[in-house]
Simulated assay, not measured.
Amino acid sequence: MPRIALGLEYDGSCFAGWQSQDHARGVQSVVEEGLSVVANEKIEVVAAGRTDAGVHAAMQVVHFDTTANRTERSWMLGAVANMPNQVSVLWAREVPEGFHARYSALARRYRYVILNRIARPALNADRVAWVRFPLDENRMHEAAQHLVGEHDFSSFRAAQCQSRTPMRKMYEIAVKRHGELVELTVCANAFLHHMVRNIAGVLIAIGTGERPVDWAAQVLAYKDRRLGGVTAVPGGLYLAGIRYAPALNLPSEPEFTVLAPTEPMNARSP
């Protein structure tokens, strides 16, 4: 029975998150429905990670097992033809039986994109976070470096987070400006529920001058979510890539392209 991996891109603004739900539409449901048509059998997928309602993916990776014999091109094009326009398949690969989209992942990368201008967005209202007050990206980047390394991220996890441990290893974190866009990039072995959005909330407060640069370190040391900042809105968040062992040769860490605010936010396909 072949095991197939897919790279997915989706606009999360019209979904209630990744996971299939009885009361609302999840991305997982439409992906499984589309693949089931191609396979002519029921398909269930396993994802590298869940995304919340309103959160997008420039690269989500899933795997599934099937008895159907299809080419990689057929899986890719057939699935896209049977999914809504807000979801696309970027690639399909047959992978070893032991591959697991979640547990084989070595690292995950997220981007948080902020539109920093006085005027509120219209074209990209659901694809960026809007901050009208001037942000100092250099202060934000300096503050973010306190989070690099292995730490207890209790101050940055949601109250409903179900992870058994708050320990996570942050490999890199950076804040850069591209004109009116301020981009936060984070890469870690794994993430807690709302972790990136809570980090963004702290850094935004530092960027506006509301809080000092060392506040990020103080919040981390508190290990108490109640003493942290606000949770930033979901629209600016993108699952941007999943890192696997190079031997798998999966195109799962694409270059994320930040476009002008008047153009659709997207990611460059591998």
Rank of each mutant, 00 (worst) to 15 (best):
E33S: 14
I242V: 15
V30E: 13
Y112T: 03
E172N: 04
P234L: 02
P166F: 01
E33F: 11
R50W: 09
A247E: 15
G207W: 02
A129W: 11
L184Y: 09
A129S: 12
Y112C: 00
S36G: 10
A247S: 14
A68V: 01
G228Y: 07
E41H: 07
L203F: 04
D52L: 07
H194D: 10
D65C: 04
A57G: 03
A240Q: 02
A47N: 01
S88A: 14
R168L: 07
A216E: 03
A68I: 00
M265G: 06
G241I: 01
E150N: 10
A39F: 00
P134N: 10
V61K: 00
L259P: 01
D214L: 02
Y112H: 00
N189G: 10
R73V: 13
A240W: 04
K176F: 00
L35G: 01
L239F: 13
A205S: 11
G49V: 02
T262A: 15
C187S: 08
Q218R: 14
Q145W: 09
A101P: 03
G98H: 13
R243Q: 13
S154E: 14
N249L: 11
S20V: 14
V38N: 04
M1S: 13
Y112V: 02
M59S: 07
F99H: 02
A122I: 15
I4K: 02
R102Q: 08
L123H: 09
P254H: 07
D152I: 08
R268T: 15
L227G: 03
D11R: 13
F133I: 15
V258L: 14
P261V: 02
L184G: 01
N69A: 12
Q218S: 07
N198D: 10
P264Y: 06
S88K: 13
L237W: 04
P270A: 08
V196F: 08
H141C: 06
R197S: 04
V27R: 11
P251G: 05
Q145M: 11
A122D: 11
L259G: 12
F156G: 00
V45K: 06
G235A: 08
Y110M: 05
G26E: 12
H63S: 02
Q60I: 09
R225A: 05
Q160K: 15
